[in-house]
């Protein structure tokens, strides 16, 4: 996988950011992706969609995306422009949805790394070498490599485009 991602950080240093916060229940009946983006992370920061520029990253605490299986969650976040989420752990369905739908990359980093990254930092993520460079602070961090099958699905751009 040969890919470098560049973008700015939006940091929400909180564990268990759940899907009800990412996209509240009443919006579940909406299936228009653009419309969903307007409510992304509404439970935590209603201004969030306006802050994001295409290619940005979200940095958060453990168990990101816990709660329901709503694929609305990674869709809404990705439609705001978020390209990757960096967190120590992800809830499994959120992780699957993000990867299999080809919406955004769930990248696992350790808790120490979360502490080192600040809101608004600029990062360069090198997927091939599993490293993250903090351009603002001139630091480098490791990221957990994707398991083999997941790396292939990511590379294909989602499960539907992946051929076993």
């Amino acid at each position: 996988m040969n890919q470098t991602l560049k973008g700015r950080v939006h940091k929400y240093d909180r564990d268990n950011i759940d899907t009800d916060v990412i996209i509240p229940g009443p919006y579940l009946k909406i299936h228009d992706h653009k419309e969903l983006a307007k409510h992304a992370l509404e439970g935590l920061d209603p201004k969030f969609p306006e802050k994001v520029q295409a290619g940005d990253f979200l940095v958060a605490g453990s168990n990101f995306g816990c709660g329901s299986s709503r694929e609305h969650a990674p869709i809404a976040l990705s439609q705001t422009g978020i390209r990757a989420i960096l967190a120590p752990t992800f809830a499994r369905i959120f992780y699957r949805n993000a990867v299999d739908g080809g919406y955004l990359l769930p990248i696992e980093i350790d808790k120490e790394t979360v502490k080192k990254i600040s809101d608004r930092d600029e990062l360069e993520i090198d997927i091939a070498y599993n490293t993250i460079r903090n351009v603002t602070k001139n630091e480098q961090y490791p990221m957990k490599p994707f398991p083999e099958l997941i790396a292939k699905i990511v590379e294909a751009g989602g499960l539907m485009k992946y051929r076993p």
Binding site: G67, S68, S69, R70, E71, P74, I93, R96, N97, D100, G101, G102, G158, L159, M160
Partner: peptide
């Protein structure tokens, strides 16, 4: 199932897990 509480049905002695839309479509 397309719902996170699909786990429930594991009480019947089945492997039961929730999936998102893309996975269910697949």
């Amino acid at each position: 199932g397309g719902d996170s509480h699909t786990n429930t049905t594991g009480a019947m002695g089945a492997f039961a897990a929730g999936l998102g839309h893309t996975d269910v479509a697949y």
